[in-house]
Design a protein around this nucleic acid. Structure first.
Lengths: 224, 224
DNA sequence: ACCTGAACACCGTTCAAGT
DNA sequence: ACCTGAACACCGTTCAAGT
């Protein structure tokens, strides 16, 4: 051969998964195909199969990568913080992360087994609740509630026409015949179209309401 | 021709969509292809395109069909009922319906415009809140919270290994190394593996907690 | 008006082969 | 050990054709 090509660093399972996340973020989960992924990695499609067994394994892998991001940017859990602050920070981090990867929550439905980062995330959150005095059964209910809220909120955010501050949503809703959907029209005109409205701002309303309710439930089973 | 074949009733948009729901329920959303759908309808693939413009339109259509089921089996809204009962019944109905069609919530992320049944469902729920005295902004927050909870809970239920009463989930979680995920193991052993446990039973804990919180929020803005 | 056959540009994946 | 080419059984969809 003529000269030494700058040897491209070899493909790894990690590079495959990170490439998949980048592609899904940029062009949507439907555009994530083995062929386009290989293209992005500068490699032929079949090279991918040397590092993952199947596309299913890629989907499992990128979901776990995303869960690994949750709590990464959070200041270390100052032990003086109450459980409320810790849970709120983690829930807010989960929502931030999942909103950046809007394809992740829908994928949960079809995943078989959660990955290591996902399990660690769940374990960490449960730890906060248990240490705060939540009995096991209440901690289970609390955690299912918190996760449901975060997942569901993210799904709704992802389903919005765009991330614009209500503009498109309001235009659509405001164009309905008022006699057909009177309350949707009212909501569009009197709320969503107001300057400064964002759907996302409602996240903290629900989160704080849930935390208040959990605090009361905890006091009921374990009076201070 | 030899004789009159019993003329198969002609394909319609409605039969296409109902066939798609049946197929997705039975074999999963991934198995819903134009070809298998046509097979189930006793027709060639291309016949489907005479009644819907694209597969995307089918997905939009079946999501709206599902939302049309919500509230269908509910007793008429006895005007004497409080908003709490009405909202609780509708949320429970939504969860029942969405659980029977576990592919529906994940589809929400990629839908562009909601259908007529979906809009009617939203309008009806908002009506209950507004009539109960929720100001527009509070009604918006309340509704986002309720929907998030229902969607997220359904996603988690769908992601469970099966609908069995914790068996498979507990087996998996109980098999972790206790030093790696101590709280997950504790939860499996002391809670999920107990006889009579079901994840779904937690739905009413969260729903009632949310309704309590909304009741307090309503009292705060509009004292009785 | 409604359905079909053949074709096109895609998929994920297998297998045998290259270095 | 790692990558590739050719092939297979699928996709959604177009187009021209049948009744």
């Amino acid at each position: 051969m003529i000269g030494d090509m700058p040897k491209r660093d070899p493909l790894t399972r990690d590079r495959v998964l990170r490439g998949a996340v980048t592609l899904a973020d940029a062009r949507g989960i439907a555009a994530l195909t083995i062929r386009s992924l290989a293209d992005g990695l500068g490699v032929k499609p079949m090279a991918v199969y040397h590092h993952v067994a199947s596309k299913e394994e890629i989907l499992d892998g990128i979901v776990d990568l995303v869960f690994g991001e949750i709590g990464a940017g959070i200041e270390p859990p100052a032990p003086a913080d109450g459980w409320r602050d810790q849970v709120r920070r983690r829930a807010a981090s989960a929502r931030d992360v999942l909103r950046r990867h809007p394809w992740a929550v829908p994928l949960l439905e079809s995943r078989t087994a959660p990955g290591a980062a996902t399990l660690r995330h769940h374990d960490t959150t449960l730890a906060v609740l248990r240490r705060a005095g939540f009995p096991v059964a209440l901690a289970a209910n609390a955690y299912a509630l918190l996760d449901s809220y975060v997942y569901g909120f993210v799904i709704q955010e992802a389903a919005l026409p765009s991330d614009d501050p209500g503009g498109a949503t309001a235009d659509i809703m405001g164009s309905f015949r008022p006699d057909e959907y009177p309350h949707l029209v009212e909501m569009a005109v009197e709320h969503i179209m107001k300057p400064g409205y964002t759907f996302g701002a409602g996240f903290h309303f629900g989160l704080d309401l849930i935390l208040d309710g959990l605090e009361q439930a905890l006091k009921r089973v374990a009076p201070p």
